[in-house]
Design a protein around this nucleic acid. Structure first.
Lengths: 252, 252
DNA sequence: CGCAGGGTTGATGGGTATCAAGAATGGTGG
DNA sequence: CCACCATTCTTGATACCCATCAACCCTGCG
């Protein structure tokens, strides 16, 4: 299952192979686990919390988010998903979906049966190790969001998010010169950063005024990554990518 | 290794067994994996991010927290740990510690060699499944903190935290009638909830004024859990305990 | 007794939310 | 191709939640 309708699962392979080195054979085998490619329109929900599921769902193309709604109607976006990301890791411990996932742009998602992934991991233990590493990175990013929400002001939060996204997009080969596609509205950004959409607007204006960031038509451009990182108190190591690459003694 | 110095690892067993049903034999075997009990004084750091490690560290007694420091000196507490909690799950994917953990009161921690845990999981797959479920619960709690930081005001955050702690303590048999030991200062609570210690103080006063909560000498008492839950927008299911109990098709 | 850490209180200001309205933008059907 | 509509973005005014600063109090403890 490769490149059907001109969609490539390469970001997914790049994501996992970026965490744990894999041989050509392993990469090929991993590729063949992908059983279907689905498309969703923007605003469509891809996964629903609590639903039974026997698949691993991977975002391949477009932008998506995880979110949760409160009884009072407010929404918190708990993660942005970029191509290569696993939508939900609950399959590691349960047969049901752990959180809501929605498309923010038209997206393509790949599906891998959990059963066949587990089976393949018997032959290639590197698969499960890579998956657990990816899950650990996911955790680290989540923790960094908590820190943003708790300790950074609006400008720093926005700057940090953009630095994070640029790094993640670059890892899967989708960012060039600090420029990458990203399809969240200012309201979405607000729900992610714990800000009102009005204040998101003013924050972005300030970043533009300082010649740090440009945003138009779903493409983000970081003009001065260094200054942005300093402003954001961004520490690339905190996303946990490099540590994840180390040999893993835990699960063989 | 049981009850040395009158310390029981029961909370740990209760925690895992509460996620996945285990037989007596399995529980006994799990108990015997614990190789050492250490004590730490309040304010002492138990784990340091990035350090190599080949152990699973479990809090057995007392209160601890995970935290991260920003370059500007601010600190975000990313989790409170109660007896039975695994301090850090990074061992699942890496040979190093994923985050800082510090004692908030005098604590006792148990140590399990990763190697022996993995070996035992070969014989009792339920161990690894329980560990992954525990990790998933940990994630769910983290997500709920993000939602608090992003969408709830000070009063709701505090109320939500207390509901969460009561539930977790009750699960391991350490809460009675809404009352449980908990040893964070108001400054600690502030660093967890993204509030200043001054505002934590005023928030607690308000909760006392409404006859919802009492706090003294390291013991928290929830006088009216229902009202508190309503105020907090607390949804017990969101912590992911019940779902984690389902039979797991993923890792056998 | 004196000290340090933690809790409490008041005053002031700032960072963001909220409300309201208008301006762009983009997609859709005639 | 244009008119229209919904969505998104933008701007201004106002209010409030909470941070910060600065004392002071209380308690436990060496």
């Amino acid at each position: 299952m490769t490149d059907r309708n001109l969609v490539s699962i390469r970001p997914f392979l790049a994501n996992l192979a970026g965490l744990i080195r894999m041989t050509e054979e392993e990469l090929t085998s991993l590729m063949h686990l992908v059983k279907a490619l689905n498309r969703h329109m923007a605003h469509q929900q891809i996964l629903e919390e609590g639903t039974p599921s026997d698949r691993i769902v991977v975002l391949i193309q477009g932008t998506a988010c995880r979110f949760r709604r409160l009884p009072n109607g407010r929404r918190q976006i708990t993660a942005f998903l970029v191509p290569g990301d696993i939508c939900d890791y609950r399959f590691l411990s349960s047969g049901s979906v752990g959180q809501n996932v929605a498309a923010l742009s038209p997206v393509a998602v790949a599906r891998i049966p959990v059963e066949s992934f587990v089976a393949a991991s018997e032959k290639y233990p590197v698969f499960m190790r890579a998956m657990l590493s990816a899950s650990a990175v996911d955790d680290a990013i989540m923790r960094e969001w908590m820190i943003s929400l708790g300790q950074r002001n609006a400008l720093q939060r926005m700057a940090h998010l953009l630095c994070e996204l640029e790094l993640r997009m670059r890892r899967v080969g989708l960012a060039e010169n600090g420029s990458f596609p990203f399809a969240a509205t200012q309201a979405d950004l607000g729900d992610a950063l714990g800000l009102s959409s009005v204040h998101v607007n003013r924050t972005l204006q300030e970043l533009r005024r300082r010649h740090l960031v440009g945003m138009s038509k779903g493409v983000v451009t970081l003009h001065d990554v260094d200054s942005l990182m300093r402003l954001a108190l961004f520490e690339p190591r905190s996303l946990g990518y490099e540590r994840a690459g180390r040999p893993n003694v835990a699960i063989q």
